[in-house]
Amino acid sequence: MTTDTAFIRNEFVPAKPAPGRTDGPIVWLRKNLFATPTDAVLTILGILFLLWAIPPLYNFIVGHAVFPGGTVEECRAEGAGACWAYIAARFNFFIYGFYPIDQYWRPNIVFALGAALILPLLVPSAPFKRINAALFFVVFPLVSFYLLNGGVFGLRQVPTEQWGGLMVTLIIALVGIICSIPLGILLALGRQSNLPIIKTLCVMFIELWRAVPLITVLFMASIMLPLFMPTGTNVDKLLRALVGVTLFSSAYLAETVRGGLQALPRGQYEAGASLGLGYWQRTYFIILPQAIKHVIPGIVNNFIALFKDTSLVSIVGIFDLLNTVQAASSDINWASPTQAVTGYVFAGFMFWIFCFAMSRYSLWMERRLDTGHKR
């Protein structure tokens, strides 16, 4: 025998308090800045430090600065900030060095061609990748050299001693980065080789260059190397620096790539062999794409370090961006208490722009290639 029972509530349920907010600026502050007493103390100290540091920086860079169009007398006035008028007056020297003024159109064409060719290479969805790569890696270097150096097609010859500024910094960085990539990959593969001779040579090369400071390499390339050359042989100073920077960077890049190769499971190598692929085929199609994807942060870190290390070439008499800033600081026509500091701030900002761009592009590529290994 079954009976149906039912429950009927005779009174209302007491009201509950409204739920707390889960988003908004106050919630974010509580969660990220004031979650614990220690976080609160550190946040307050950080705010106090910013209140102490930002006003003087703002006054120097913007508030009391003398902008383009100002005079040297304004820069010399008591309490004046950064002399941006001086940067504007010497801007061409910072970019081109001692390159003849009436020939500025030649490096400008090189800058424009480089930007037009490298931007499509950085965008994975851009079409005609092979043609673009051939133009950038083969045609562009030749065109750039003959445009900048001259001596052909009626162009006035401009020796590399007159090159300088940001132009030389970009040349050294681009050549060092582009040439060190294939050389570093080959060295990494050679160090992983089962052939004793190849492995020993690669290990000796890598350890030699990693054990020597870059400044020593530059001194050897610029000062000591001519002593070992045949009498009458003269190798361009900029070319010697390019070779030294490339070899130095390739040794560090090789170890970065080797880390990516060692991170791959052995099954990837065996899978390639089971498909009947030869060594170079499975290395090109299977191993390297995965290894390089894993070490993108390390590779870009090497590139950023190389770009900043280009400033060391100033020690051997090459007028890169930093050297032009140092040389211009002795210009008595713009002598002021903030002249040198303004020049170094400008140089630091230029380095920051390129390094920050490489860092952001690296993060974007990491997110795009992060296919994951979820089951």
Rank of each mutant, 00 (worst) to 15 (best):
P17A: 02
I44C: 10
I292T: 13
Y104C: 03
G20L: 14
L122I: 14
L214D: 11
Y284K: 15
R210I: 07
N333I: 03
W84N: 02
T256M: 05
L122T: 12
I177G: 00
V143H: 03
I171S: 04
M220P: 01
Q339H: 12
F351R: 05
F94A: 00
T5E: 14
V325L: 01
A80P: 05
F140S: 09
M350W: 09
G276E: 09
Y252A: 01
F219Y: 14
V257R: 08
E11I: 03
A347C: 06
G348A: 12
A211H: 02
D370R: 13
I109N: 05
S180H: 11
Q162G: 06
R367I: 09
R130G: 11
P213M: 08
E207Y: 08
K308E: 11
L275P: 09
H64K: 15
A40G: 12
A89K: 10
T338D: 12
K31D: 14
W364G: 13
S359D: 15
F285S: 12
K237V: 09
L227C: 03
A335Y: 04
A251M: 03
K374M: 08
R375S: 11
E270F: 06
A126P: 11
L50N: 08
S125P: 09
T43S: 15
N32P: 04
L208T: 15
A291T: 09
R210D: 10
Y279I: 05
A40P: 07
Y269H: 06
I109A: 15
K293T: 14
T200P: 05
I353A: 03
L117S: 07
G20Y: 02
T36D: 07
Q268H: 13
L33E: 02
A327I: 04
I223R: 07
L113I: 13
C355E: 04
R375F: 07
I47S: 12
A305L: 13
F140A: 06
L277E: 00
I178L: 13
M220T: 13
N108R: 13
S274M: 02
Y58K: 08
D4A: 12
T216D: 06
L322V: 10
L121G: 11
N323S: 14
A173Y: 05
Q268R: 10
L50G: 14
L208G: 02
T256N: 12
T3Q: 09
V158K: 00
A173T: 08
P289M: 04
C179D: 09
W209G: 06
L166V: 02
G260E: 04
P226A: 03
F7W: 12
L119R: 02
I299P: 01
F94R: 04
F60M: 10
V168C: 09
Y86C: 06
Y99K: 00
T216L: 15
V175K: 01
L121P: 10
P230D: 06
V139L: 14
W105G: 13
S250G: 02
M358K: 01
N302H: 00
L48D: 03
V62T: 11
V257D: 01
V325I: 13
P159I: 01
Q281K: 15
A35F: 11
Q103T: 10
F140T: 03
P25C: 05
A15Y: 02
A291L: 10
R90T: 14
I296E: 06
V13K: 15
A133N: 04
F91K: 06
F248V: 04
N92W: 06
W163R: 07
T169F: 02
V313F: 00
K308P: 01
S314Y: 08
